[in-house]
Design a binder for these strands. Structure first.
Length: 594
RNA sequence: GCUCCCUUAGCUCAACCGGAUAGAGCAACGGCCUUCUAAGCCGUAGGUUGUGGGUUCGAGUCCCGCAGGGAGUACCA
């Protein structure tokens, strides 16, 4: 409709004023609620062609459009805004299409679909996942679903940062103080256990540095010469030299962590098509760096470290290999990228990584370009904002984190309590109840995170917890459950549904709802081009708010006129389908009752 | 120091690449369950969009200055 309208406006300007305007300059927006109408044309841009007042110009256009477009029932002019009222038949026709199309709003993949690889999660294997990782995982999963819904082929990938100084720190502390503790012996989840040793390392290290400083060693020297950091570095060096003992311990501890991560991923409902391990890719990266060095792209310092000089690009120098020959983060990212492009014919590479790494990706892109990869500059860093606590940023080492597993458990507990208080599920067995509580808890958590603009820093206050009323996931799930309840009752009464008649008189709430439903495909597209699950979340909220008003004001099953009742049932079912489809794009499930 | 980002109601967030009188939820107060699920619906109150300029028919949105907050700039990842 909007496309058609734009074309007609262009035509109108030509016929009325003899000027050529581009379709892009035609501004169509939804009419504000305070005015009568559905769509509004902004006429200010055309005044210079019309050489008339805004009101007069709008009126000219209004007359032209209602003559030429049958779906325009009437129009009115307020200042420079032309408000168009679209016919009911048009909206009902749109509803019927949505109702009959089991993929309404979704663009199917085809043979020449683009292949998009989405990297997300990418955890370090030295500590458990926290709230920040949850945001990353949920965004990555949702973005993947949204890209699929826009006709792309998507490969979800995870680069596990399983090697490096960080894991050596946990290993060092475990060797020193672990006394052979394992997940089995302690009953602790593997990632949590390893994380504890990471924290222990930090305490050990800080104590050593403090001790050295008390003995008059300067701070910087103390930080470099503390026994624990030297020990950890030594382990990293041995690891890169394939020392069997170190490799054995490393493998054991990593397995503990993977088992823990798998559990958390499963709970969150996220997954991957292809997993890369830094322990495999860093060598490829190291080879690439050496190649760059030989080709004169990088430079070697006297101490043996290898650097990229990015000063010509207006940036700094960046280290690529340490003086002891070990790799840094950047080294492996180069290798990982190369491997991926060898493994897949990638049209677009998306990195879901926090905005604290903006600089890193700027550099990565330049380095790959320097190494001769033409796709280097096409990497897209989906840069999302941090999750902050009232005390500020989360820090794993200092233990100021909201643990992912704890948070999910807490949410389930609250969901169960709320549910039991309301008592609507009393006649169900424990198993079904647990399943519904889980859906609601995750719905609340996921929606809470995904409804905010990914680019923005967001605040989470653990003390206030996450709401289940108002603009929340459970509110939207509740509406879905309510809809299913109506549909079940309709079925019990033997009511059949069929496409609605277009000639019906409609109530205002019904038209509002129809308009919302009509907008869904455009929202899915917009969410795709903007990489924004938040647009889907906010849309679902507005749709559901609209539906609840309709539900409250207007009877469905009690309507005596069969055609009208049928229309309302179609409207109800379609709303339910759109909610479910929209929520699926967010990775949120909808319970049939709650 | 240098670079980038942020600042909207008491709190958490919206505002469709510059459009009409800046919207929701939470918290507060008041109404609505004999009727399709009250995790709902309706209403009241709450704002000089951090601040000062500029650009134009029109600025929360674009440009410049200032204040406050954050991130990056490591032989950390």
């Amino acid at each position: 409709m909007e496309q058609l309208l734009k074309k007609s406006v262009v035509q109108a300007i030509k016929e009325l004023y003899g000027a050529d305007v581009k379709e892009e300059t035609v501004q169509i927006q939804l009419t504000r609620k305070d005015f009568e109408g559905d769509l509004t044309v902004v006429v200010f841009p055309f005044l210079r062609f019309a050489k008339k007042s805004p009101e007069q110009t709008a009126d000219d256009l209004g007359q032209f459009l209602s003559r030429n477009l049958s779906d325009i029932a009437k129009y009115n002019v307020v200042k420079g805004f032309l408000n168009l009222v679209i016919s009911n038949a048009h909206w009902i026709d749109g509803l019927n299409k949505a109702y009959s199309d089991s993929n309404y709003g979704i663009t199917a993949q085809t043979d020449d679909s683009k292949l998009v690889m989405v990297e997300y999660s990418s955890p370090n294997t030295n500590k458990p996942l926290h709230m920040g990782h949850i945001r990353n995982n949920l965004l990555g999963h949702s973005i993947s679903e949204i890209l699929k819904a826009n006709g792309n082929q998507v490969v979800k990938t995870n680069i596990v940062n399983d090697r490096g100084i960080h894991i050596c720190k946990s290993m060092y502390a475990w060797m020193k103080e672990g006394k052979g503790e394992t997940p089995e012996s302690s009953g602790k989840k593997g990632d949590h256990l390893v994380g504890e040793y990471y924290v222990k390392f930090d305490r050990m290290y800080k104590a050593e540095v403090a001790g050295l400083m008390e003995n008059g060693v300067p701070k910087e020297e103390a930080e470099q010469s503390a026994p624990s950091i030297i020990g950890a570095r030594e382990m990293l060096r041995k690891w890169e030299q394939d020392d069997p003992e170190i490799r054995g311990l490393w493998e054991t501890m990593n397995q503990w962590v993977y088992a823990g991560f798998d559990e958390t991923y499963k709970k969150l409902g996220v997954g991957f098509d292809k997993i890369y391990y830094e322990s495999d890719t860093y060598k490829v990266g190291r080879d690439e760096v050496m190649r760059g060095l030989n080709e004169g792209v990088f430079e070697k310092h006297d101490d043996g470290s290898v650097w990229a000089n990015l000063e010509p690009e207006g940036l700094d120098r960046k280290i690529l290999l340490r003086s002891d020959g070990t790799s840094v983060y950047m080294t492996q990212d180069i290798g990982t990228a190369k491997l991926r492009y060898e493994d897949y014919s990638i049209d677009k590479m998306v990195y879901v990584v926090g905005n604290e790494q903006n600089y890193h990706f700027q550099v990565l892109s330049i380095l790959l370009d320097k190494l001769g990869y033409e796709w280097g500059k096409d990497l897209y860093h989906f840069s999302y904002g941090m999750v902050e606590l009232p005390q500020g940023k989360m820090k794993s080492r200092e233990g100021t984190v909201v643990d992912a597993d704890d948070l999910v458990e807490e949410m389930i507990k609250v969901a169960r309590e709320t549910s039991e208080e309301l008592g609507k599920l009393d006649e169900y067995d424990e198993e079904s109840k647990r399943e519904i509580h889980r859906m609601i808890a995750l719905g609340a958590l996921k929606y809470f995170i995904l409804k905010v603009d990914p680019k923005k820093t967001m605040m989470f206050n653990p003390l206030e917890s996450i709401d289940f009323n108002g603009n929340t996931g459970p509110f939207i799930q509740y509406t879905y459950a309510r809809i299913q309840s109506v549909l079940r009752k309709a079925k019990d009464q033997g009511l059949r549904r069929d496409v609605a008649q277009t000639g019906l008189q409609l109530r205002e709430k019904e038209i509002e709802l129809l308009k919302r439903l009509n907008a869904f495909p455009a929202i899915v597209k917009e969410a795709g081009t903007n990489y924004s699950p938040a647009l889907i979340a906010n849309y679902c909220y507005e749709l559901v708010k609209e539906y609840n008003q309709f539900y409250h004001d207007i009877t469905i099953l009690g309507e005596p006129d069969e055609a009208v009742r049928n229309f309302r049932l179609v409207l109800t079912e379609t709303t339910g389908n759109v909610i479910q489809r929209g929520f699926a794009l967010l990775g949120i499930e909808c319970p049939e009752r709650m």
